[in-house]
Design a binder for these strands. Structure first.
Lengths: 215, 215
DNA sequence: TAGATTGTTAATCGATTAACAATC
DNA sequence: TAGATTGTTAATCGATTAACAATC
């Protein structure tokens, strides 16, 4: 048997950051009934270079056709697969304050994200229902995790509790965190984390205001 | 009079993205009572290189001292100034759904952001109060804008209405948008926009889950 | 087939890291 | 002063853009 070397080319963070944006624009094209598009046309819409679009996509495969361009539906589906949106993800929300409730109410269902549980430590919230899901007390989580598959935990809780909760989640077999707490959680063993940090975003806006460069 | 050439070196987006993160870590150090820190110590905490920290900061000025490092309080304040957090920003929220309410309730006050108005088109929301601020109907906005200084509009509304609203805001003299709508708003004349796109973030998490690289 | 547009290699540009002289 | 650590220049690395041969 011949030796085979598989070179897994590492996809850069810059590319990954852009994928959901392509997905979004392709969705708009779909809704507008556009059937095919060239990298050039897409580049004009998205204000990026056609070269970058082709480079980005070719990290994952050749989805286009010379002389034709890209089939919008096909490319949309392929990017969906790349992003893992072909799988259903069960989500729990930990911290059912205003933001937690907003997330629980958010309509992520069409992308395959399903809220299956809400948890808090505040007794007054116990039993409150959001979209038919009751708020449970956090100490019920270990039992809940045994009975239900949990793919993602959205953390909307004070930063003081974030790390401890992340470690607990890891021990319960939850390996992905969508983190809204005001602290970075990128050092929890075996855990995939996406930090949101709304206040960072607001500060960048503030910076832009202060340094408005009359573009 | 001698001619003076001021070379405004353009600060890269990569640097600007990192500034709020420095601010956050410095705040933690302050809370922990740490008085001074070297780029090396900070680098270990933040998992970035010391070189990058020094380069980043020196885009804005020399805030450290050879042989000593950086005074935490001083550096914190300076970064706050760079980010424009020394100014108060009046914020209105347009779209008072779950996310809009969460933002209205969010505690951004300590960074100088003050929610001064809430707007929606849904009559059933009229008069509802959040933190003492009543929900107004969107058609009252022009009058409200005349009477009040508005620095930032947070948009939490359906993507279909985002662009129109942005244009209206521009005409009312509002020049900064914190955009939560599921569409990019980077082509509105004279408008500074920070796009949040929570679903992009969730998709990146989904990607990480699908491609979990056993780090 | 001729024209269009991709996939991909090569060139350029910018950002990160390393190194070290300046200096507290 | 000697030691430490910055500010800054130079070297490296990676990402973006340009170019073009392959091909539908």
């Amino acid at each position: 048997m011949k030796g085979v070397i598989v070179l897994e080319k590492e996809i850069s963070q810059a590319v990954i950051r852009r994928m959901p944006r392509y997905y979004r624009y392709l969705n708009e094209l779909l809704e507008a009934g556009v059937e095919r598009i060239s990298s050039n046309e897409l580049s004009a819409r998205m204000h990026v270079t056609a070269s970058q679009i082709r480079q980005d996509l070719n990290n994952f495969g050749g989805f286009g056709q010379q002389g034709y361009g890209y089939n919008v539906q096909y490319l949309y589906d392929e990017i969906g697969n790349i992003l893992g949106l072909n799988t259903t993800h069960n989500v729990i929300v930990i911290g059912v304050g205003n933001l937690g409730q907003a997330i629980a109410n958010y309509n992520f269902g069409k992308f395959g994200f399903q809220v299956v549980g809400l948890f808090d430590v505040k007794p007054s919230l116990e039993g409150k229902e959001i979209r038919g899901i009751p708020v449970r007390m956090l100490d019920e989580l270990p039992e809940f995790a045994k009975q239900n598959k949990i793919d993602i935990a959205a953390l909307t809780l004070p930063k003081e509790n974030a790390e401890t909760t992340a470690v607990m989640l890891s021990s319960l077999g939850v390996h992905a965190i969508w983190n809204f707490a005001h602290v970075d959680l990128d050092n929890v063993e075996g855990m995939v984390v996406e930090n949101v940090h709304l206040s960072d975003s607001l500060m960048r806006l503030s910076y832009s205001i202060a340094n408005y460069d009359h573009k």
